[in-house]
């Protein structure tokens, strides 16, 4: 078991009213599993993703990555774990505007110790997302779709074990969307990366082995795609 979420709750006090963004959610994900969480806007999907990534502390419950309780770690150790073992893909443009495409991809390596091969790998990732000729381009000179693809390339620079993707193909045209999903499958197959994809796009969810549905902070099973299940 690579990821284990046990009875996690996260609530917010909004003008004296308690809002449960995530309500007693439990889920597990195996290594190289690909699962999706579907639900309407405001259903708590993004909060759940942040809880799984150790970006915010749950009010109750535990998040365990490969046997390590995320919130039993010190902040530095949690940062290191994020830097070495996981990546996030956001639904908005998450590039640093002052850095070029290649610098954006290589940026996570600035926060940890990585081998000298990362630059070559960054170029390879640029090629994989079809933007090899845009290495020196700044985000302001790239289209929204191109920026999204650079951000996706960045998510693989640290060879993560888990990728937490929040609406990764939002705003992309169908062709780009298909390419991105193909890339996810390739990384899943070749590098055994576990994907947890938050989406409201049923088509994308349909391409993951397991789909979970989130409603008002509560998680329920939606379906299993047996043809995509790991043998």
């Amino acid at each position: 078991m690579l990821l284990e979420v046990n009875n996690v709750t996260k609530q917010y006090d909004i003008d004296g009213q308690i809002l449960k963004a995530v309500d007693a959610v439990s889920l597990t994900a195996d290594k190289a599993e690909m699962l999706s969480v579907v639900g309407h806007s405001g259903s708590g999907k993004t909060t759940l993703l942040s809880l799984m990534g150790g970006l915010t502390r749950p009010d109750t419950g535990t998040v365990i990555i490969d046997g390590i309780d995320l919130w039993a770690l010190r902040d530095n150790q949690r940062s290191e774990l994020r830097n070495r073992r996981m990546s996030f893909i956001y639904q908005f443009s998450s590039l640093i505007p002052t850095l070029t495409a290649i610098e954006n991809i290589i940026l996570p390596t600035a926060f940890g110790t990585f081998g000298a091969d990362r630059e070559e790998y960054a170029k390879e990732l640029l090629g994989i997302v079809g933007l090899a000729d845009k290495a020196r381009a700044y985000p302001s000179h790239l289209s929204g779709g191109q920026q999204r693809r650079i951000a996706i390339a960045r998510a693989f620079i640290n060879d993560p074990e888990i990728v937490l993707a929040d609406e990764p193909t939002g705003d992309l045209d169908e062709q780009s969307e298909a390419e991105i999903i193909r890339l996810f499958h390739r990384m899943n197959r070749e590098k055994a990366v576990t994907f947890i994809i938050v989406t409201h796009n049923r088509e994308i969810a349909g391409q993951t082995a397991r789909q979970l549905r989130m409603t008002n902070g509560v998680l329920g099973s939606s379906g299993v795609n047996s043809s995509l299940m790991k043998k």
């Binding site: 990534g53 902040d75 940062s79 290191e80 830097n83 940026l107 600035a110 926060f111 940890g112 640290n158």
Partner: peptide, 15 residues
């Protein structure tokens, strides 16, 4: 947001 993104990439508090 940028600082949050850097933290998500693994930047430590001291960084």
């Amino acid at each position: 947001r940028e600082l949050g993104l850097l933290r998500a990439m693994g930047a430590k508090r001291r960084q």
